[in-house]
């Protein structure tokens, strides 16, 4: 599953979102690439959001719907003229519906080098109890 040894990276075009619910600020919106995996105790989501600073990232979990929004600052100065533009720059947005019950108080988010790592701990299921029936 790893394959980082010799594989050549292929270009994956940024996916532009065509119609999000109407925006107040115009500009392109992109869907971040994500990895989502589950372990016994938690669900982990990794999202590529290059250019997003921690203070520009909003993570919202409400009614089992997880929403990620990341604003990206323009890097170019006013004098710069475009020579070759291969990728678009804009906000990141993506929504997920969670199937599991999440322990909301223990969610952990860490943004480093443009990659968000979001850890969503599952609520521990009540261990089944055996009820012994006493007979008098």
């Amino acid at each position: 599953m790893n394959g980082s040894d010799s594989k050549e990276l292929k270009v994956r075009e940024k996916q532009e979102l065509s119609s999000q619910t109407e925006q107040t600020r115009p500009g392109p919106v992109f869907t971040p690439d994500v990895d989502i995996f589950e372990t016994e105790k938690e669900i982990v989501l990794l999202a590529d959001m290059p250019g997003v600073r921690a203070e520009d990232l909003t993570i919202d979990l409400r009614d089992d719907v997880l929403t990620l929004t990341g604003e990206v600052q323009e890097q170019a100065n006013d004098q710069e003229q475009a020579l070759m533009m291969e990728f678009g720059v804009g906000k990141f947005y993506r929504q997920f519906t969670l199937g599991e019950v999440i322990n909301q108080g223990a969610i952990d988010a860490n943004l480093q080098g443009g990659v968000l790592r979001l850890t969503l701990p599952k609520v521990e299921k009540a261990t089944p109890r055996r009820i012994t029936v006493k007979s008098a």
């Binding site: 990276l9 270009v11 170019a76 710069e80 475009a82 533009m85 291969e86 720059v89």
Partner: peptide
């Protein structure tokens, strides 16, 4: 916004003094 198809995609700009090359490498 056509791409060369080679990773990473880059944006190249210039002003009077410099070229600026940017790439997304999260």
């Amino acid at each position: 916004r056509s791409s060369s198809g080679v990773f990473p995609l880059v944006n190249l700009t210039e002003d009077a003094e410099n070229f600026y090359l940017r790439a997304e490498l999260p």
